[in-house]
Amino acid sequence: MLSLPDGDLSSPGPSPADGDHLGLRAAALAYIEARHWDILPGTSVVRADGSWRCSCTNIACEALGAHPAHRDWQKQITAQPSRVHGWWQDHPEAAILLPTGRTFDVIDVPEQAGCLALARLERAGAAMGPVAATPTRRLYFFVLPGAKPKVPEMLMRAGWGRAELDLKCYGDKDYVVAPPSRMGTGGHVQWARPPGESNRWLPEAAELIPTLAYACGRERF
């Protein structure tokens, strides 16, 4: 079972008085101001007619609250606090999305494999970036940008090039859902290892891939 810390980004907590009852606006502002990360407005999960739906109004949506709110989403990426205030004031339950391929890429693995890899990496004293956990039982490992096109070669060098591993990498023109956004009907994305001063400098993907691939391989085989 994944053990999540109580800590998170150093940011103001939820403020019901100003409408930020889920703390999403505060978190989005902290990503911009404390980490210098770009953010992207997402959709939200809404309750309608006794069931959960996505605010995009597509009744067949398979990514409830987990995709951009705008079709031209790449033009909506921002690091401007004023835009964050405006969007989350009008849409207080909107997900926060983090565009990848800019400040970081993200390696996405199953939770069980990710926990095994995380334990091994920490025991070895490896440099670690932030790690997020989703309610869909996935772990997101944040690494330096530019990793996505290199991952196949990294897997090959680690001896896993021909294996069908459940390991994905998000890079240029991709995005991930950020804590504390709601994702689908299962709950909220959380930080397993929150961003802080100790992990401000992200690792190269090559430092994590051998261990992540091994952990995924154990789950696969």
Rank of each mutant, 00 (worst) to 15 (best):
G171W: 01
L24K: 05
A147C: 09
S198F: 08
D172F: 08
Q74M: 14
W160Y: 15
C169V: 12
T57Y: 04
P14Q: 04
P5H: 09
A117L: 02
T78I: 01
D38E: 13
T43Y: 05
F141E: 04
I77F: 02
A147G: 12
A132S: 12
L144K: 15
L121C: 12
G42K: 00
R193I: 06
L165C: 08
R123V: 08
D38M: 02
D49A: 15
G146P: 02
W88F: 06
F221A: 12
I209C: 07
A113E: 12
G146L: 01
S198H: 14
T185G: 05
R200E: 10
R102L: 12
A213C: 01
A213F: 02
P179Q: 11
E219M: 10
P12H: 01
Q76E: 15
P210S: 03
L202N: 02
L167G: 08
G184H: 06
G184L: 06
Y175Q: 10
I96M: 11
G13S: 12
R71W: 13
R47E: 15
H21C: 13
A117H: 04
C56N: 09
E111P: 01
P12F: 00
Q190I: 00
S44D: 14
P135M: 00
E164R: 14
A34H: 12
A69F: 10
R83I: 04
K173G: 03
G186F: 08
W37V: 01
W88C: 06
L118V: 00
L64A: 11
S198Y: 11
P5S: 09
P152D: 12
Y175A: 00
Q76M: 11
G129K: 06
G171T: 09
A213E: 06
T136R: 12
R138Y: 00
L2W: 13
A30H: 14
M156G: 14
D20S: 07
F221P: 05
F221R: 11
K173A: 14
L121S: 05
S51H: 13
T78P: 07
E164T: 13
P180F: 07
K148G: 00
G19R: 13
A215I: 02
L139M: 14
M154P: 00
R162E: 15
P149Y: 03
G217C: 10
K150T: 14
W88E: 07
D108S: 13
G19N: 13
L202H: 05
T78V: 06
G159C: 10
G186T: 08
G114T: 01
E164Y: 02
